Simulated scan of single mutants.
Amino acid sequence: MALVTDPTLKVIPDFAGNAYAGIRMDLQAATNQTEEEVMTRLSDTWNADHNTRIAEWNQDQEAEARVLAEVERARITQEDAECAQHEAEAERERLEAEKKKPKMNSFDKASSIGDYLTPRPAQYAIQKLTNFEYVELWYFSPEGCRDALKSSRLIAENDLSITRTDDQLMLRPTSVFKALKAAIVDHELSFSIFLQAKNLFLIQISKAKWPWPHIDALSLFFWHLENHSIQNNSNIGDMVILTYASCVHQDWHDRLKRDEGFNIGNVNENLICTINEELWDKVRSRTLNIVCP
């Protein structure tokens, strides 16, 4: 039976006091011992019993501590198991969400655009072949933003279309799926508008959480073109840069979709020279037509 009182708190009784005088006399008469011997015997007996109780108390405390420790271990094990289960469920949910999230293919950082570009089909055909959308920089120009705001004000509230997002059907304005009629291709922009538009474009792709390697590569692409020396050495330098930017940017999107991505930040000087020669040929041809009608 477990002890309920800590025996270490008890002190030995005063066997020499008056309270034990009768017991001492009885023990003297029964054992023919002196009073001193009787008190010694009483003390020894009490101490022996006291030590036994302390030993039992310590054993009970150790046993109780072991039980409590086992209960605590069981509690921690259960909590760890529940935590692991919750983490596993959260990880499964994250993986499921990751599967549904659109992916953008990577590219070889050591690669570059080729010296020649494959002719492109119509934009409508490109959009049918790929889910990776290319958008003209005009949409990020001041004029493009003004036109978008003007168009949004003209949309009727009941002009809606059904679209699927993450396995859910949603109603969205039809204008989301229509190109603005005023949009123009990149190489027909003025160079100043091109520079303004690319800044907002880079901000928007960052907000859209594009992969940082792609954002960095595009930032470097625009920086190289903005500071290219051909603008100082050619009367058509701006047009060369705009043509290169337009063609290479579109080709980069197509290559990424086919998992043939190249580092758009690596400018191909041979291609710039080719474009420069082609544009000069057009200038010379127009000049000859004017001189020799």
Rank of each mutant, 00 (worst) to 15 (best):
M1G: 14
T5N: 13
I12W: 00
I12H: 01
G17Q: 00
Y20R: 03
A21G: 10
A21W: 09
A29R: 15
A30Y: 09
T31A: 01
N32E: 13
T34E: 00
E37K: 06
V38T: 01
N47S: 14
A55N: 06
D60Q: 02
R66E: 13
A81Q: 11
A88F: 02
E91G: 03
R94L: 02
L95I: 12
N105Y: 04
N105I: 05
N105R: 07
D115H: 08
P119E: 03
R120Y: 09
A122F: 02
G144W: 03
A148C: 02
S151F: 01
S151A: 11
I155N: 02
S161G: 05
T165I: 15
L169M: 14
K181V: 08
E188L: 15
W212H: 12
S219F: 10
F222Y: 12
F222R: 06
L225C: 12
N227L: 13
H228S: 03
I230P: 03
N235T: 13
I236N: 10
L242W: 03
T243P: 05
Y244G: 03
A245I: 02
R255C: 10
I264Q: 07
V267P: 02
V267G: 05
E269H: 08
N276M: 14
N276R: 15
E278D: 07
R286Y: 06
L288T: 13
C292N: 15
